[in-house]
Design a protein around this nucleic acid. Sequence first.
DNA 1: TTGTAAGCGTTATCAG
DNA 2: CTGATAACGCTTACAA
Lengths: 345, 345
Amino acid sequence: MSGVPVTIKDIARMLGISVSTVSRALKDHPDISAETKEKVSETARKLNYRPNALALGLKSSKSKTIGVIIPEIVHFFFSSVISGIEDAAYEAGYNVIVCQTNEMYERETMVARTLLDHRVEGILISVAKTSMKFDHLAMLQDNGIPLVFYDRLCTVIDTDAVIIDDFKGAYMATEHLISVGCHNIVHFAAPENILIGKLRREGYCKALEDNNIPVDPYNIYLCDTMEKVAEKISRILSRKPLPDGIFAVNDSTAIGAIQEIKKAGLRVPEDIAVVGFGNGPHAVISCPTLTTIDQNGYEMGYEATRFLLDRIVKANILVSARKKVFTPSLIIRQSTGRNTQNTRF
Amino acid sequence: MSGVPVTIKDIARMLGISVSTVSRALKDHPDISAETKEKVSETARKLNYRPNALALGLKSSKSKTIGVIIPEIVHFFFSSVISGIEDAAYEAGYNVIVCQTNEMYERETMVARTLLDHRVEGILISVAKTSMKFDHLAMLQDNGIPLVFYDRLCTVIDTDAVIIDDFKGAYMATEHLISVGCHNIVHFAAPENILIGKLRREGYCKALEDNNIPVDPYNIYLCDTMEKVAEKISRILSRKPLPDGIFAVNDSTAIGAIQEIKKAGLRVPEDIAVVGFGNGPHAVISCPTLTTIDQNGYEMGYEATRFLLDRIVKANILVSARKKVFTPSLIIRQSTGRNTQNTRF
DNA sequence: TTGTAAGCGTTATCAG
DNA sequence: CTGATAACGCTTACAA
């Protein structure tokens, strides 16, 4: 029962006609008689014929496939981006190959090569935190493969990008903390090479300045994973005076901080208010629930794919790099709630 | 600067030699002189030559690609499965095409066809909740594409599967509830067609029976999403007597239940103890933290891929369908903790 | 209306 | 040691 895929040749042989006739019949070419078409499509259906995408791709130099380079699928934000990408791609008849880098530069160069090998027609990428060189991306462009950044871009490659306004999001988050009475606000920052790290820090600083709060460099910690939180939190919580607010570069570190603060016998938000970035599902599970910045993963994936498809059909001849910048929104929850006596929830 | 990928032909032309010589030189064929090899590999490197995977696949009928059919990437369990799959695949030099079904039968048949079109050498699949017919999977087998199930299998297709012992996990979860004093235990069940629904329900029932607690069919609710929890919880919480335990088929519904229980002014675990299934990251964020069954997503993905690769190299001639059954483990946390006065965390 | 043949990029077979 | 040539599955001029 386990055979080998049926080809156009099999159909031709079976019907005693030529492969070109079969090929044309299958794509409803006007030259072919209705009768032949009928016979062909019937046997095709009966044999469960499916066109060989490899052959098609080779012939047309169009693989009808786009590649996605993504740091880590396990994060809600990134997996929702993928959903947006898939939907947009399928709508346009494209397939998607997803490759994870696990935040490793090494792996990123590897998957870039793999995607080139597979002659994907375009690539969506969010760069790994450890990537400082970008020759591998230039190489893709040299090969005529259009590139679009989503969420994390690098400035040395000039192409389309779909991002949110990280600066503004950070500004809003920080200003919100100030508005609920915080003066001594710690920032958990991400590395600067991925730009979001830089922009979110800048947004944080600007909000402080605009409110006449001096920026204290000691209030900025490179702290973008749970592990780093665990590593640094005790130092932070033993500071005098105690910080009264934390703006974290992502939800996980914000929630990690909340848990540690509670463990230390302090209260959120009464002692320390906390804001995250991302608005993943954790935000509503955490206790207190997390005030955070919504990041529109699905929409970003969808729009980035639209950009890419546009470049693909236009053969990448667009000169100007377009940017689509989503406006972040602040989702206020208990972790900054003024009157929130229900930390116990 | 934006060109078209370099082919073996370009190298040949550039060097004034034949394509076959180039081909052989590139794969270090013994017949080729060291000098020629040197020249070829140098220009290849200089031009950034990368073999066309489509041509290779067409020629060899080996796409070096495996397909993954997955219900929804956004769930932690499934995205960790993907990580395991990717690692195992890359180790073996295979690429991965991931397709989501969003739990829709329609989409499942679609992506099955797409993967066949792309001549993937094998497919890993966890069936959608709504799939009741499986002709599309039989069709893949008819085309000689080996199949391996992970987590959710269907019984009408006989092939390898990597699962956890759902029955046992459910049994352990239920027995644990009994051991902390629950007698009136509600079960949130998944639909039965995906087998895990059936097995987890059976494990639940068996644990009750073994402990001389009669199974009350009214204690079993078809409730496997947050939405369904919201829909049914008030009916459950207004029952007299109040259930004193809930065993939910997954973590999300368990946590949804916890939140609703707290909202209703009841305490977890004092009034109602709760156990989930999955041990995703939510489990430690929830308040109280969630007692649950660990599901080994990464390992399942890895092992399933090993099975699949094995079938691929053995040309799928293995007769017997192998099963790898992971033993679940119970992770006890606050949601069933006896002495947990800290529900407020 | 249908068939023949070339070609997409690569490898393998066969000659030289 | 190297070069033609055919073949993988399919499309598409060009012939018939």
